[in-house]
Design a protein around this nucleic acid. Structure first.
Lengths: 161, 161
DNA sequence: TATTGTTATACTCTATAACTATA
DNA sequence: TATAGTTATAGAGTATAACAATA
C-alpha cells in the first residue's frame, strides 16, 4: 500500500470539487433570491415543467427527497402562486400538482440566472475546455451512484419506512 | 441577449459541480467517522501540521471561519487528545495551539482516507484525464475568489465586527 | 393492512450578543 | 479603546413519531 500523499488541499480533486460545488451553490442561491425562490424550488419547477399532474409522492421520489419535505416545498410554491394542488383524477388521497402561468413566466428567468452563474464559473475556459470539463464531470456523476439530476443535498431520510 | 437554455441539470456544469462536491464531501465525512473526526477537523489538523504555535485567531483567519467556531473545533480536538492549548509566549490573552503525538499518528491515516475517496471519485479516468480535470478545477478555483484551501462551507460570519 | 399527505415535537447547527482578561 | 477567547441565548433547518383520510 503506498503511503498517503501530503498534497495541499488545492491539489486534491475531491477538495476542489467540494469547494467549487459549495461556492457555486451558494452564489446561485443568492442570485435566485431575486426571484424569491431557492435552488430546491428551481429543481422542482424544472421537474414539473417536464410533466404536470403527478402526485407529491412521485415528485418526492424523482427529486430524491422525503415526501414530508415535498409538503414544505409545495407550500412555498403555492404561497408564491407558482404551483397548484389539484384533485388527483385517479386517487382521492393524492394531489395532482400543476404549474401556474406565473411559474411559466418565472422559469425562463430562473434558467437565465443558472446560465449566468455557469458562465461566471467557466470564465476564462475555452469552448474545448468546457466540453472536456462537462464530459469528465458527467463521467464521474454516472460513476457516483447518484441518479441523474438528483442532488444529494436534498437528501432522502436515512431510515425511511 | 440569448434565450435561457433549457438543458437538463446533468448537462449543467454548475449543477454537476454542486452534486459531485456534495457527494464527495458526504462520503468523506462518513469515512472520516472511523477516526472519530470530521472534515473541518481534518482541515485544521492539516493546517497545524504546517506550523504549530499559532493563536486561535490566526488559525480561524487561515481557515476562513469565525473565531467562535474555532473554539468548538479545538474543544473537539482537545477532547480527543489531538491538540493542545498552550500558553502563548508573546501574548497572555492568546493560546498557542500545538498538535499531540496522537495527532501525528492519526494524520497519515486521515490523508489515506482522503486519497481513497479521491481514487473512488476518479475511477475510470486516465492519468491524462485526471491531470486535465485537476488543472481545470484549479483554474476555476483561482477565478472563484476563494483563498487557496479555504472551504466556503465553513463560512465566516457575515457581519463579523 | 398499506399508502398519501400532514402535523407536532425534539434535536442539531448556526447566528447574535455580551462577558473576562489582557493589550 | 481594542483584541483573544469564551459563554449564553435565540433562531433556522432537519429528523422522529404519530395522525386522518383513503386505497
Amino acid at each position: 500500500m503506498p503511503p498517503p500523499s501530503d498534497r495541499p488541499l488545492n491539489e486534491r480533486t475531491n477538495f476542489l470539487l467540494s469547494q467549487l460545488g459549495f461556492h457555486t451553490a451558494m452564489r446561485f442561491t443568492e442570485r435566485l433570491a431575486a426571484l424569491d425562490i431557492q435552488p430546491s424550488h428551481f429543481g422542482l419547477l424544472m421537474h414539473l415543467a417536464q410533466g404536470e399532474g403527478r402526485s407529491q409522492q412521485q415528485l418526492a421520489e424523482a427529486l430524491g427527497i422525503h415526501r414530508k419535505v415535498m409538503v414544505g416545498l409545495l407550500d412555498d410554491l403555492e404561497q408564491r402562486g407558482l404551483a397548484e394542488r389539484r384533485r388527483h383524477p385517479a386517487d382521492r388521497r393524492a394531489h395532482a400538482i400543476h404549474l401556474t402561468d406565473a411559474a411559466r413566466t418565472l422559469l425562463p428567468q430562473a434558467r437565465a440566472i443558472a446560465d449566468a452563474e455557469e458562465e461566471d464559473l467557466l470564465t476564462g475556459l475555452s469552448g474545448e475546455q468546457r466540453r472536456q470539463l462537462l464530459g469528465l464531470l458527467q463521467h464521474m456523476a454516472e460513476n457516483s451512484g447518484n441518479p441523474q439530476g438528483v442532488h444529494p443535498g436534498l437528501r432522502r431520510n436515512p431510515g425511511s419506512p
